[in-house]
């Protein structure tokens, strides 16, 4: 049945630290690699070396510019660039699951992971329509819906060394911007991290109750603070020539007169 479980034993998910992410896309590549070589239909690329390349990805990194408002004490605020990795949020109220006509989409009772049973998927695409985050992509070659599995074939895989039993994106992140754990346990490091840093939901108004949390970026260094006053002695320095001299001075005056 594609009805959602009323509660799940664990709530496995990710914490994504927008303060730490450097936008290197390593998580994108490791995700694509692992999920092409392992469980389920491979993530295809079409026209990969041609003029119109396109492919299936379960994790994509956007970049957003945040421009702070102009205020009295910050007359010329500097814009911030935020790198923003986005994959399935394994929502508690996952709208993608209930719309599925075949029961191919489901949320696991034991750990809350949202998965697609690819042999039942008819490729109607309705689950991707229902997802506000763009977390589901129809594979253009296999014609089935692909989505983040939270590397379900890694996290319980006893053939892997213990340190590798976490999602490929988390394992590979060189900045430590991604964390994996159980949000049902208030003492888990992801729960604590999220509580400490004000972990937030994306599009809370959509009512999806995402499990994954995003940590907001901290204010950046204020390099431009007091621009023009780089030294306390600066006001005592001789002012730089305000008027041009020589040929440029002549040109400036002549043009003024015209």
């Amino acid at each position: 049945m594609t009805t959602l479980p009323t509660a799940t034993t664990k709530k496995l998910g990710l914490v994504i630290d927008l303060d730490t992410c450097v936008g290197c896309h390593a998580c994108v590549i490791s995700c694509k690699g692992w999920n092409t070589e392992n469980y389920g239909a491979p993530l295809s690329d079409t026209d990969a070396y041609g003029g119109d390349p396109s492919g299936t990805f379960l994790n994509r990194v956007h970049s957003f510019e945040v421009k702070p408002p102009v205020l009295k004490d910050q007359p010329a605020p500097e814009a911030q660039l935020i790198h923003f990795p986005k994959s399935c949020l394994h929502c508690e109220d996952a709208p993608c699951v209930t719309v599925c006509p075949t029961g191919a989409s489901y949320k696991r009772v034991e750990d809350g992971i949202v998965l697609v049973n690819e042999s039942d998927c008819i490729g109607c695409g309705l689950c991707a329509w229902a997802c506000p985050y763009g977390a589901r992509e129809m594979d253009q070659v296999e014609k089935v819906m692909k989505k983040c599995t939270l590397c379900v074939d890694r996290i319980y895989n006893e053939n892997l060394p213990e340190e590798d039993r976490e999602p490929a994106c988390v394992r590979t992140c060189p900045a430590g911007a991604r964390h994996f754990g159980d949000f049902a346990d208030p003492d888990s490091h992801v729960s604590k991290l999220s509580a400490e840093r004000g972990g937030m939901d994306l599009m809370p108004e959509q009512g999806t109750k995402p499990v994954n949390k995003y940590l907001p970026p901290r204010p950046k260094d204020t390099l431009s603070e007091g621009a023009g006053d780089i030294d306390i002695l600066a006001p005592y320095l001789e002012p730089v020539a305000q008027e041009a001299k020589g040929f440029l001075g002549w040109l400036d005056k002549t043009l003024e007169k015209l």
Binding site: L18, F64, E65, K67, P69, I82, M200, L202, P216, P217
Partner: peptide, 13 residues
């Protein structure tokens, strides 16, 4: 709301 970055100012893709 989609990015949660609104508190910091205006957000642009």
């Amino acid at each position: 709301t989609a990015t949660g970055l609104g508190a910091g100012g205006s957000v642009r893709a």
